[in-house]
Nucleic acid binder design. Structure first.
Lengths: 244, 244
DNA sequence: CGGCCATTTGACACCTGTCAATGTCTGTGG
DNA sequence: CCACAGACATTGACAGGTGTCAAATGGCCG
């Protein structure tokens, strides 16, 4: 099942920065130390420090914060090709937790390895910075989602965003994608109750827009869904600036 | 009215990283090119690129995103001593707008100046990275606020957070602080309607917790407010890791 | 087959938004 | 000095979105 081909991270970064063979090799070297993690056990826990970063090779992860009253807010999901805990390794502090949603494979990256790779291949730093910046832009978009959109639009936007992200690594299209999330995950990410998530999903399904069922998201009418969600399919493509 | 003393940014960073005289000088040099901006005219507009960054010397700014339907979501507020548009200058892209809330004074910083300062005083880069990271942590906390807290708790948390931030630059205490925001600003930041903001403020005031009136936030019962909001007064103090 | 987990559904309460009107304050111009 | 406009704050009535509670259904696995 495992690929020998270029990693997904390579694939993603190459879509935005033309990396040389030397740079590509440095990038691949970072991903040698593969580890497997099982569902449920947190990779990094809120408040821990001195952690490694990871490059996700397969499986889904979510990063979240838990409140004293037990409710949690999922900040973002990580999919194959994504960095995980990049900030915590650079700053040696972590302000939220990471939980595998499926069994995952990830390459562990020490701060020293990362810095060495940057020294060898400086443009790599730019590319990684771009990736981190894209992640931050998604958190901001997530913020707008929570603050200013109704539950149905919020859901539509979220499903479309995941679709675009997955398409970047060849795991999705305008037809749909495989999605291991439960409705509880959606609830914790979108600031809704699980019951209401179910209601919204039913409504979207019955409107012929999108179907979320048994681990699969199917876009029944991609264009109408994009219109409902005011979704800009290009907002993740912060292309241009880095192409020089 | 203007201070000759060390800038507020210096003051803030010094609370977390012990900077040498050489580093302090480099930091001050960044802040020579002062400019004044008036209320209402955006500093950086959504989608623009090739912008300068700013270090805010006086006044308040908000960063926000506007949606096609006209509603807006305020992502964060910047107060004296804060960076503004740091990411857009490094990546030459801007995904949201900045609007002065009061008349402001800010120092314009070109990407080249910043990089030169980093080269001269390497630890400065760490300090600035720390500041950027703290800003990102606040956005995440903001996300949790919107997703998982009721309007009253959300408001309480927000007022306390601004208080802590202002205290770091000597502009606030547990007594309260001067606050130029209108209830519309609060609404756009907290994902509420202006009418509901008013209701919530009244409730908090009548509960004897906090009073928001005529440009002033007064903590009537700081401890109870902290308890209501589940506010961790230390979460902005990402101290420790950088002190080595 | 018997749990266990996720999904689904209905009833009901309540938090929050919307609409509309009024009050307060400040600055401007007659 | 007063009238007025405009921005912001305040209040009430009402509707609707969303949460909570509770129960039923369905699928998966030991």
């Amino acid at each position: 099942m495992d690929t020998i081909k270029p990693s997904l991270l390579t694939r993603k970064l190459s879509a935005f920065v033309a990396l040389s063979a030397h740079e590509l090799a440095a990038l691949e070297r970072l991903q040698l130390r593969r580890r497997t993690f099982v569902v449920g056990r947190d990779l990094v826990h809120q408040g821990q420090s001195k952690q490694a970063a990871y490059i996700l090779a397969s499986g889904w992860v979510c990063s979240y914060k838990t409140q004293p009253d037990g409710t949690r807010q999922i900040v973002d999901f990580q999919i194959p090709g994504d960095f995980l805990g990049l900030r915590s390794v650079l700053l040696r502090t972590s302000d939220h937790s990471f939980e595998p949603i499926t069994e995952i494979q990830a390459a562990e990256v020490q701060a020293a390895d990362l810095l060495e790779a940057f020294a060898t291949a400086p443009r790599l730093a730019t590319a990684v910075l771009w990736a981190a910046s894209r992640d931050e832009a998604m958190v901001v978009e997530h913020l707008v989602n929570l603050g200013r959109r109704d539950a149905d639009v919020r859901m539509a936007h979220f499903l479309l965003e995941m679709g675009s992200r997955l398409a970047l690594v060849g795991m999705g299209s305008q037809e749909g994608y495989d999605c291991p999330l439960t409705q509880y995950h959606l609830a914790d990410a979108l600031g809704l109750s699980a019951v209401h998530v179910n209601r919204v999903l039913r409504q979207l399904r019955e409107s012929g827009l999108v179907t979320f069922r048994s681990g699969r998201v199917s876009f029944d009418n991609y264009n109408h869904l994009v219109k409902l969600a005011d979704f800009d399919p290009d907002y993740l493509d912060l292309t241009g600036p880095l192409l020089k």
